[in-house]
Structure formats: C-alpha cells, structure tokens
Design a protein around this nucleic acid. Structure first.
Lengths: 227, 227
DNA sequence: CGATTTGTTGACTCTAATCAAGCGTAGTGG
DNA sequence: CCACTACGCTTGATTAGAGTCAACAAATCG
C-alpha cells in the first residue's frame, strides 16, 4: 500500500476542485450533514479496516472507493463500489464488517455517525433518508448477489451495465477500477475478466479504447445476458 | 401449486395455535403494526409475484417463506429465506423485485405498507425500526453474497451455520426447506447439495437423522470453511 | 530510458454442471 | 394390507467452464 494507513479524518489538505457531477446524486444524508473538510486519499489507501470502530459515515466527492473482505483462502471479495455521490459506512453494528479503500485518487467527506443518529431521533426526514440509504445498499447487494449466481459472461454484462448506469456518462465511460478490483467484485479471476473483455470486443459487443476506457456497442446483447 | 394463487390477505381461517417461538424475534415492525388476521398458506403457494404492487409488509409467524427470481436461463435464484419472526416485503420501489412463496405450511400476518410509512413520518421509533429492518436485510444479503463467492463445501458450511443460528434450536435442527430450495439459494444444483450432505456425513462433520433433520457435529470445521 | 506494475494470452487442471439411473419413502387405490 | 405410483433424494459417468500456472505484452512511473 503506497502510503500506509494514514489517519483520514481531519487530514487537512486543500479541498479538491469539485467537478460538475460532484455530490449531486441525492440521498445518503442531508447535504448539511457532510460538512467536514474534504479529505484526499491516494489510490490503494486504506480508509478503515474490517473490525474497526464504525464511528463515521462517509461520502465520496470524487474518485472511487471499495469495501471488501479478505477470505480465509486469501482471496478478496469486494462487497461494493462507491462512486462520486455515493455514501458508505452505514453499518448495523459498531464495528466495520468490511474494510474500505480508495481504488483511485479520491476525495471524501465524513461525519460522526452518532450525530446523524441523534438528528434522526427528532427529524423524520433524516430518519427517512437513513432508511432510503440502507435500502439503496440493499438493492445493490441484491443485484450483486444475482450477478454472483451467473456465468462469467453474464456477470461481465451486468457489471458493464451497472457501471454505465452509475457513472452517468452514457455508454462510453472510463472505469475507475482495475482488473483486480473487477475480478474481486465479480468473484472471478483477472484472467477471466481479461478474456471476457477480449471476447466482447472481438464480437463487437464493446469497444476498448484503452484497458479502462470502454464503449458499449451491443446493449441488447448485454441486457439479454443480464436478466 | 397445490392451491393456486389465492388471495392471501384477509383469507379468513382459524389462527394457527402459536408455538413457543412465535413472533418473539424482535425487530421488523412494532408488534402493534402486525395486527391482521393471520393467514395460513400451504406449501408452494405463491404470496406475490415479481412485478406485483408492493403494498403490504408481512411477518412470518410459523413455517417459512422464500423470495426468488427466475433468471433468463430458467434457473431460479432464491434471494432470501424468512423464518418465524422474520418480516419481509420491504422494498425500495413500488413493485416487488422478487416473487415470494411459502416453502412449508406457513402462517403470516400482513399490514399496509402505506400505514407503516405514515406512522414513521411522525414516530422516530417506527422510523428507526424500518432502518434496522432494512439493515438486517442488508446484512443477510451481504452474507449471502459472500456465500456465493465460495466453493460448494464452503457455501454448504455457511448455510448450515446460518440455519443453526436462525432456527435457534442449537446444533440439531429440522430444515424447513427441501434440496431444491437450498440449491437455488446457494447457486448450486440439487445433485451438488446432495453430494455435500453425503460428504459431510461420511467425514463426521454432520449427522443426517433424515434428509431434513440435521445435527452439526464438527462446528470448528464448518466455521473454518465459512470464513 | 529501464524498471515495475498491469493486463493479455495460452496450455492444462479441477470443480461443479449435466445427463442418466437408481433408491426410498409417502401416499393411493385395489 | 400390499402393490403401484410419484416425488424427493442420492449416486455415478461424463462434460463444460472457470481456475491455475506460466509466459509475454503494454502501460506507467521514476
């Protein structure tokens, strides 16, 4: 890990110049709630570990974060990706069930979980936001779960469509994560991911401008695979 | 489908004689909220279909329910099992993303979703319960997701430990579901499930009193597999 | 520019799926 | 009561798909 486990909270650095899409994706905490100094986190930097106290809630302003677990056999399972506008860190218990790390140069804001929960005590609006947030996480976990019960090409198709939907740049996009992260998200190996990219390109389903820059060409095919 | 798609709500039948474990498993709606006449549902009876209006919330009093989706290739993926005390039907959207059916003779109570949401508007307690409910579902979906990224024996191990935990009868229990339901939950085939049961029995990890009555013998082994 | 990481491709292996019988129990009707 | 059936479950043989191991190419970084 390039920069070790630096303390993220209160890590004072000049706030990132916010891009046009920053923090406009609704939900996950009243915008007033995320008021801290934005923290910049380098790629591969750990944000918290599995088992750490779950005291903070976070929101991604730019870049991307993933949560994951290391399994007994050494493999890593990525539980979720968080893109700009997404919030993470909401957990049922007091300890983190997953670790979180930046998968690209990332800017996040954070706030104390306890203050949000206190606020929700008296403000039905905040309470509803928490429920919506939890249900959005649930929806994604369920979609992810369906992915994992599919064949490799179907998982790829679902992944590509999910990214197109979440990155909000149409059917052309730049993946914020590398092959390893994709593989660990889809429960496949990097070799299989690579082969699927090649196969989809050769059959004209996608276009690979570079290894991360992708254009979806045959949406119908991808959609058919993904249901 | 033994009894067809009968309307469940308001299906007047004598309330089931409540067993000792009924409805004592906390959360998932203030107990005052589930006050309707208990409905009895025969095994394999459909409760709602994917795409149906999601107007009601349900709570299992006895028996067991599963939610599932039929995939394009004809396979079925079970999303979740609901045992006595569990509530189901809470969804982000207005339509059901999964179908639900009883996997054993089952008794449920239901209530209008809208009245719960209205109540939550003014009552932070109900709001918090909804959040906790959503997060319990999320926790289970995440555990399920981890299961699906494992080998067949590891999935079995996690499944058995989950059932032991949720059925609350110690390490001896009677599975409420058949091999087909287990297979569709774990994303495996019934043949593989059967082979795993046989293998675990032959190696003394479990004891099969009958095909559904199970005793866990080597908890350490199962635990080691499941992390 | 070389060094190192990241991604691609190929040959082979292994796990779980598929296909195909067979077994056992429960329920039915003669 | 006992055949007969039906269904759920188990077992075996073979196959297909993803993993593993190994080499190589391409991109990125210092």
């Amino acid at each position: 890990m390039l920069q070790g486990h630096s303390a993220i909270i209160g890590l004072k650095q000049p706030p990132a110049p916010a891009g046009p899409h920053i923090a406009d994706q609704t939900f996950a905490g009243d915008s007033r709630l995320f008021q801290g100094v934005p923290a910049r986190i380098a790629r591969y930097c750990n944000i918290y570990d599995e088992g750490d106290a779950a005291d903070y809630l976070y929101k991604v302003l730019a870049g991307a974060v993933c949560t994951y677990k290391i399994l007994v056999d050494g493999r890593r399972q990525v539980a979720s990706f968080y893109l700009p506008g997404d919030a993470f860190g909401l957990e049922r218990k007091d300890t983190q069930p997953f670790a979180a790390e930046a998968i690209a140069a990332t800017t996040i804001v954070s706030m104390k979980k306890s203050s949000v929960l206190d606020l929700a005590e008296n403000d039905p609006n905040t309470g509803r936001e928490l429920t919506v947030w939890a249900m959005t996480e649930l929806f994604r976990a369920q979609r992810h779960l369906l992915m994992l019960s599919q064949t490799a090409p179907a998982r790829m198709a679902m992944f590509l469509l999910e990214m197109a939907e979440r990155l909000r740049t149409g059917y052309e996009f730049e993946l914020p994560m590398g092959r390893r992260d994709i593989a660990d998200y889809l429960g496949l190996t990097i070799e299989t991911i690579s082969r699927m990219f090649t196969r989809f390109q050769q059959t004209g389903v996608i276009e690979l401008q570079s290894s991360r820059r992708i254009g979806l060409r045959d949406i119908d095919y991808l959609t058919a695979l993904s249901e």
